[in-house]
Simulated assay, not measured.
Amino acid sequence: MILPGESDEAIAAAVQALRAGELLGLPTETVYGLAADAASDVAVARIFAAKGRPADHPLIVHVADAEGVAHFAAQLPDFAQRLIQAFWPGPLTLILPRRPGVGQAAAGGQDSIGLRCPAHPVARALLKACAAQGLHGLAAPSANRFGRVSPTTAAHVRDEFGDALLVLDGGACQVGIESTIVDCTRGVPVLLRPGQIGRAQVEAACGQRLRSQDELQAPDPRASGTLEAHYAPSAKLRLMDARALQDGLDLLGREAARLAVYARVPLKSPSAGVILRRMPEDAAAAAQELFAVLRALDDQGVRLIWVEAPPDTPEWEGVRDRLRRAAAA
């Protein structure tokens, strides 16, 4: 059941459902989440079961404010505090040392936990209402089956889980790809997943160089969305450069069928069985529509999606990451 997220009655119903251990479709500025009370191992187990997600693959916990951070995190390094001041509420997740005895199921059994304070007004209203009722945070991975395309509208969530799930409708997500994840458990900031907030922004805010995963000897903590194959549509996705796309269309000619091409350059095909979609030239606009486009092409029954590889520039890093993982599936 989809309810208008700006309604006080809908927020109250959502809090009641969460307190009862039920799941909820939650809008954020990045993607829609499948939320449950992070303190309830039983409720969190329902997330894993609904998504078909391995129980040792951790979830991000969404909090309303600094009190939520203090409830889940054992310590907060100075550079992490600077990142919070710069980017929260917003699309940045911090991996922090976990307080013993809290959020164990949501953390996938690790001694660290991922925390984020979302900027979406519906998510913020719900988290504040939850905090007033003693719910310190909501575990909320993307509201889709494990490894598949993330949802960016309430209708996408309903398509995944049916009408029985309560979903707060917050409109189409403005960012469109998941949050940047920075590991703050090893004394220096380490990028685990790129997103809208880029490397240069993180470094400027925290006053330290942002390390990559392969620079440090110690193993990285497991984190959401970091599997090699992820974010995949049902159709097979292939990344190609612009010349290869047009050459492929010319080679297939009129025989091409059930093929979609998503590219920034204008392309031509003589076949009526080819769907041509233009990708925005702007990285933020491309990120905002990416998952919705992949879902729409799946709905049109294509078997293969050719995508023009994004530019190798910092602003496109988040989109490149999602497409690379989708192509690996």
Rank of each mutant, 00 (worst) to 15 (best):
P54M: 03
A272E: 14
G21S: 05
L323V: 13
G90R: 09
G5C: 13
S7Y: 00
G114I: 07
E228W: 07
M240D: 06
L23Y: 09
I275T: 05
A283L: 02
E308M: 00
A256M: 11
K236S: 11
L245W: 00
V63L: 10
A287P: 06
L294T: 05
T30K: 03
L135A: 05
V122K: 05
Q75F: 03
G114W: 14
G68D: 09
P189A: 14
K268L: 15
G21M: 02
V102T: 14
D37I: 08
L290V: 07
A143Y: 11
R278I: 12
R148T: 15
F72Q: 11
L59Y: 14
T30L: 05
V188R: 01
D78W: 00
W306M: 03
R53T: 13
Q300I: 01
H230D: 06
D111I: 09
I305E: 05
A35T: 08
P54F: 07
G195D: 02
L76Q: 05
G301T: 01
F48R: 02
V261S: 08
A309H: 10
A50C: 02
V307M: 12
R53C: 12
P118K: 08
A105S: 14
C184A: 15
R320M: 06
A129H: 06
A235G: 02
L276A: 12
D250G: 05
P280I: 06
Q16L: 11
F72K: 00
P118S: 08
C130T: 09
Q75N: 13
W306I: 08
E315M: 08
H136C: 04
E160H: 04
A204Y: 02
V157M: 12
